[in-house]
Design a protein around this nucleic acid. Structure first.
Lengths: 135, 135
DNA sequence: AAAATAGCCTACCAAGACGATAGACTATTT
DNA sequence: AAATAGTCTATCGTCTTGGTAGGCTATTTT
């Protein structure tokens, strides 16, 4: 399951995607429109900024805005950043890989199955972007 | 990510699948062979029994055993039981559905995308069984 | 320069989930 | 009766999650 934080992140990003190229948007505006706790949203947006997805401007007329066009931000990137691994097991994760203890990956039915699941999932989230959040 | 509990469950079930129709297997034997904390495994097996996947026998010569043949126990069933929802969002879950607050499911890009992911995942885990764990 | 604006940073907290353990109880077999 | 082996209830420490508080810093306006 995606954490609430991830859901907030996607709501905020969807909002910023709609407002792309229209200048900075206040955290408070996003929080209000998307009904996200303000201070919690601050943390999320800052994290997205540090990852290079968003940028910000301080002072009057400041706020947050997308650092690149919506179709260039992959869903997979955001999920990994805010939610963590996409795979169901560490031993089949690309970005959070960890070797299985007491289990030979070459002969593990669970491993094989979870690898399939991962690929099926990646096939979707690696090929969808913030643009697809706008309907 | 699958919880450690789920991974233990699958290891235990894989072991019992191999020993299908060979009589009851001791918890302690499974715990030792699969390196699972004994008391933790007790809980897991009991849960699987209450769900009808396993059955047990007390006293000498007792132990746990599969209640039906391995190919009749779907992976999806076990995941839902031990790990919880398979979907990434409550609003696209079949067995743990919850309506989205502040979001119209009919016009939500995230919803649509997560529905795709769910279907891709279900397509695998609904069509694989404990039999596929044995390699 | 001062005031106002708005993001940045550090810290903290409550509740719940997770992984694991302890011990007594019950049913079955020898 | 004794031994065996699953069942039940309870507890526990640690980590994660969701959320809050308050001060700091950079920028803009007056």
């Amino acid at each position: 399951m995606l954490s609430k934080k991830s859901q907030y992140a996607f709501k905020a990003l969807a909002y910023l995607a709609i407002k792309y190229n229209q200048g900075p948007v206040l955290i408070s505006e996003i929080a209000k429109k998307k009904k996200i706790p303000l201070k919690f949203l601050e943390n999320i947006l800052l994290e997205l900024k540090k990852a290079g997805i968003l940028d910000s401007k301080k002072g009057k007329g400041g706020g947050y805005f997308l650092n690149k066009s919506p179709e260039k931000v992959k869903m997979a990137t955001v999920i990994r950043l805010i939610n963590g691994p996409i795979a169901m097991l560490p031993c089949v994760s690309l970005y959070f890989y960890e070797r299985c203890k007491n289990c030979d990956e070459k002969h593990c039915g669970l491993h094989d199955m979870m690898l399939e699941v991962r690929d099926a999932t990646l096939n979707i989230v690696e090929n969808r972007t913030l643009k697809d959040l706008i309907v």
